[in-house]
Design a protein around this nucleic acid. Structure first.
Lengths: 219, 219
DNA sequence: CGCTATATTGACCGATTGGTCAAAACAATG
DNA sequence: CATTGTTTTGACCAATCGGTCAATATAGCG
């Protein structure tokens, strides 16, 4: 139905690829890997189907490329925390960052969700490898916070899962959320209210002292 | 690959339909509506494809039937709460019931998730109608608990979303959870630990007093 | 201009899609 | 036995699937 205007004449290679990736992300997000067709992607991009294959090689290559692009967008999250970090700040940032990422890349997030739902046929290696290591290292630091008495003694991995699920819900289940709340879509105020709710419940629930840290007195 | 043994000779109509529904639930859960093929469902059920259509009429009828069956399984949840109920008990039960339902019907849950992910083309009416009313009525009661001082003043609808997302995560993202935790699948002890974690964080986060209600003294 | 390299795309391929149909097998009743 | 109604299922249909290919158009450069 809605075809991108891909026929800007001076469209360089990078620009065309970007158009294709964006269209494919939408279609894959909605229908999953098997349910998506190259024809639907081509229509969405406003290009002939053979052109998609010329640039992307195959359906699988295109799909994997989208998965990798989405994964790279998550790199910044929780990256520079230390045993000395303030749990309140870190968890609060974690919640807001995840929430914003979901709003910024809804199709990429849904694409990822559909892949996991299907049993992660293309991502099982990543999940049991890099991501597992990442979670283990973050969990180790959070565990130290607990032992320092900065927060309750909860399983850090379950805490990470909780923040993931609670935030992703609003992108992947957006159809359900908007249907129930009776809104066409969530605006910035809604997102902010959700973030404040999640901060309240999760931080308080983990026994994190809200570091409304006393402003250093000017000397 | 794994074909159900559908050729028990005395298979009555109900039994055959059950076999088909179970097979279809698996395939739809994994590939979504468009990605699932009747041939794959037939193979899974161990029946010829034409037989599936003889009993179910069409792919869409079969799919809608599965959606309705899954929805009916959720009927008991949060059904009999009142303004006088104990929030701690109710929320705790809510968490555990949702968790158990996800473990009992993983394919149905995934099927539902895939439907929402695709934009809920078959469920938009239900979401904006019955389910919305259901949430509104439950939220009204939870709101009264807040006004009675039994818990913090949080948006009850967001609290419901939080419990939904946090519990569903372990069925719909089971591939990710097991990959990260390094387990083949979650056992009963895992589920119990998750429930206790969620109870701890969510109840405490909402300011619900744990009703370790003093046992009434025997007269 | 001519020559080469890259893009574009309609036509086509075998395989698979959801669905139909009629012939056959079976069950129940007389 | 014959007759009726219900299941079963292979064969088949038009449409679509992912992918190939060759003919063509365009661009860059001498």
């Amino acid at each position: 139905m809605t075809a991108d205007i891909a026929n800007q004449e001076n469209a360089g290679r990078a620009h065309i690829e970007h158009t294709i990736l964006r269209a494919a992300e939408q279609v894959f997000a909605q229908y999953g890997y098997r349910g998506a067709s190259l024809q639907a992607i081509a229509d969405q991009a406003g290009l002939p189907k053979a052109n998609i294959l010329y640039y992307m090689g195959s359906k699988q290559t295109l799909y994997v490329r989208l998965l990798n692009r989405m994964m790279s967008r998550w790199n910044a999250v929780l990256e520079d925390i230390t045993p000395e970090s303030d749990p309140g700040r870190v968890l609060s940032d974690f919640i807001r960052t995840k929430m914003v990422l979901g709003q910024r890349y809804p199709d990429g997030s849904k694409l990822f969700a559909a892949e996991i739902l299907a049993g992660a046929p293309f991502l099982s290696g990543y999940l049991a490898g890099e991501l597992r290591e990442w979670v283990a290292s973050r969990a180790a630091i959070i565990g130290q916070w607990s032992r320092q008495g900065k927060m309750d003694d909860v399983d850090p991995r379950l805490l990470i899962f909780l923040i993931w699920s609670a935030t992703q819900h609003y992108t992947e289940y957006s159809a359900q959320v908007t249907g129930i709340l009776g809104k066409e879509m969530l605006d910035n105020d809604d997102i902010d209210a959700i973030c404040r709710f999640l901060e309240h419940v999760i931080l308080k629930g983990c026994g994190v002292q809200l570091s409304s840290e006393p402003r250093p007195l000017s000397p």
